[in-house]
C-alpha cells in the first residue's frame, strides 16, 4: 500500500489519518485530551470550584456551537435559545416538579433537542448570513416567550433552584461534590462531541462545508445532515444549560438573551473555530476575563471587545488555530 503523506496541514478540524493513534484520535489530540482531563481533575484545587464549573458549562456550550460552525461553516446566532430553554426547563423540573438533578438536566436536554429539531428544520435551508439571521430571529422568539411565560418567572427568572440529591442519594450541596458531577458530564460531553466530529457522519459535514454542490452530486441529502448536526448541537447546548441551572441554582433571561448567543460565538472564535479544542480555551479566557474584571462594571464589555478585535486582527484563526499553525499540528 502506498505511503500516505501527512505533511500538508490544512486549515480545518480534520486531521490526517496517518497520525491516528489510540481511540481513533491523532497523537496530538490524545495528548491534549489527557491533558484536559488532568486539568479538569486538578482545577478545583487551584481555583474556586464554582468558577471552574462556570468555565466548564460555557466550554461545553461553545463546543456545541462549534459542532456546526467548525464542521459545517454555519454560524448559529441564536444558540442561547437551547442553552436558556434547557436552563429554564431543568430549573423548573428541579424546583417545581421535584426531579432529581440528573433527571432535571436530562429533561433540559430533551427540551433543547425538541426545540432544536423544530428550529433546525426551519433554518438549515438557509446559508451564510441568512442562516445566522434566521436562527437569531427564532432565538428572539424564544426570548420573548421566556419573558412572557409564567413558569419562567419573567424578569426574576427561576431562583433558588435546589441542587438536590444525585440519583436521590448523593447531596450536591457541597461544591466539590457538585464539581465532580459537572466535571464528569463535561468530560463525557467532550468525548461525545469529539466522536461526532471524527465519525463517518462528521466527515460528511466537512465535505458539505467544503463544497455543498459536490456533496449533493455525490447523492448526499445535505439538508438532513445539517439538520442532524443542528439538533445534536442544540442537545449539547442544552446539557450545558441544564448543568449551569443546577450548579448556580438559577435560570434567568440572561441565559436566553441574544448577548449570550454573541458571547458563545466570541468564545469559539477566540479559541479557534477550526480546531476541536479551541472553544474550550476561548470559553475559559472569556469567563476568566469576566470574573477578573467584574469590579470594573461596564468596562468588561469594552475590554472583551478589545480582546476580540486583537484576536481578529492578530490571530484570525483563534488562539489554538494560530498555535497549531505555528507548531504545524492540528490542535
Amino acid at each position: 500500500m502506498t505511503e500516505i503523506n501527512t505533511s500538508h496541514a490544512a486549515d480545518t478540524i480534520a486531521f490526517p489519518k496517518g497520525e491516528a493513534a489510540a481511540l481513533g484520535m491523532s497523537r496530538t489530540h490524545l495528548v491534549m485530551m489527557v491533558g484536559l482531563v488532568a486539568l479538569v481533575a486538578m482545577a478545583p484545587f487551584a481555583f474556586y470550584p464554582l468558577f471552574v464549573v462556570k468555565v466548564l458549562c460555557f466550554a461545553l456550550f461553545a463546543l456545541s456551537l462549534n459542532l456546526m460552525l467548525g464542521n459545517l461553516g454555519l454560524l448559529s446566532f441564536g444558540h442561547a435559545a437551547y442553552f436558556g430553554l434547557s436552563s429554564y426547563s431543568a430549573a423548573h423540573a428541579a424546583k417545581v416538579m421535584g426531579f432529581t438533578p440528573e433527571l432535571a438536566i436530562l429533561f433540559g436536554v430533551v427540551v433543547a433537542l425538541v426545540v432544536g429539531a423544530v428550529i433546525g428544520a426551519l433554518s438549515v435551508r438557509r446559508k451564510g448570513i441568512y442562516f445566522a439571521m434566521v436562527t437569531l430571529a427564532f432565538a428572539q422568539m424564544v426570548y420573548f416567550f421566556s419573558l412572557q411565560a409564567r413558569f419562567t418567572g419573567g424578569e426574576d427568572g427561576i431562583q433558588q433552584v435546589p441542587r438536590g440529591q444525585l440519583f436521590g442519594l448523593i447531596s450536591l450541596q457541597n461544591d466539590m461534590t457538585l464539581y465532580a458531577l459537572v466535571a464528569t458530564l463535561f468530560v463525557l460531553g467532550v468525548l461525545a462531541l469529539y466522536r461526532i466530529t471524527y465519525s463517518p457522519f462528521g466527515h460528511i459535514l466537512r465535505s458539505i462545508r467544503d463544497n455543498e454542490g459536490r456533496a449533493i452530486s455525490l447523492g448526499y441529502r445535505v439538508n438532513l445532515y445539517k439538520w442532524l448536526a443542528f439538533v445534536l448541537g442544540a442537545g449539547f447546548a442544552g446539557l450545558a444549560g441544564g448543568m449551569k441551572a443546577i450548579s448556580f441554582q438559577l435560570a434567568s433571561l440572561t441565559d436566553v438573551y441574544w448577548g449570550m448567543s454573541g458571547e458563545v460565538v466570541l468564545m469559539a472564535l477566540i479559541g479557534g473555530m477550526n480546531t476541536f479544542f479551541g472553544p474550550i480555551v476561548g470559553a475559559a479566557l472569556v469567563v476568566w476575563m469576566q470574573n477578573e474584571l467584574a469590579s470594573f462594571g461596564a468596562w468588561v464589555t469594552i475590554v472583551q471587545g478589545l480582546v476580540f478585535m486583537v484576536c481578529i486582527l492578530a490571530f484570525r484563526k483563534g488562539i489554538l488555530g494560530t498555535l497549531g499553525q505555528f507548531l504545524t499540528r492540528k490542535l
Binding site: H8, A14, K17
Partner: peptide
Amino acid sequence: TMTVLENVRIALQRHRHGDSWDFWRSD
C-alpha cells in the same frame, strides 16, 4: 480541506453505505 484519499472516500462512503448517520462511531 480534506485529503485526496478522503475526497474519494466520501464518495465511496455514500456508494457503499448509502447514508452515514452514524455519528456515534469512530471514523
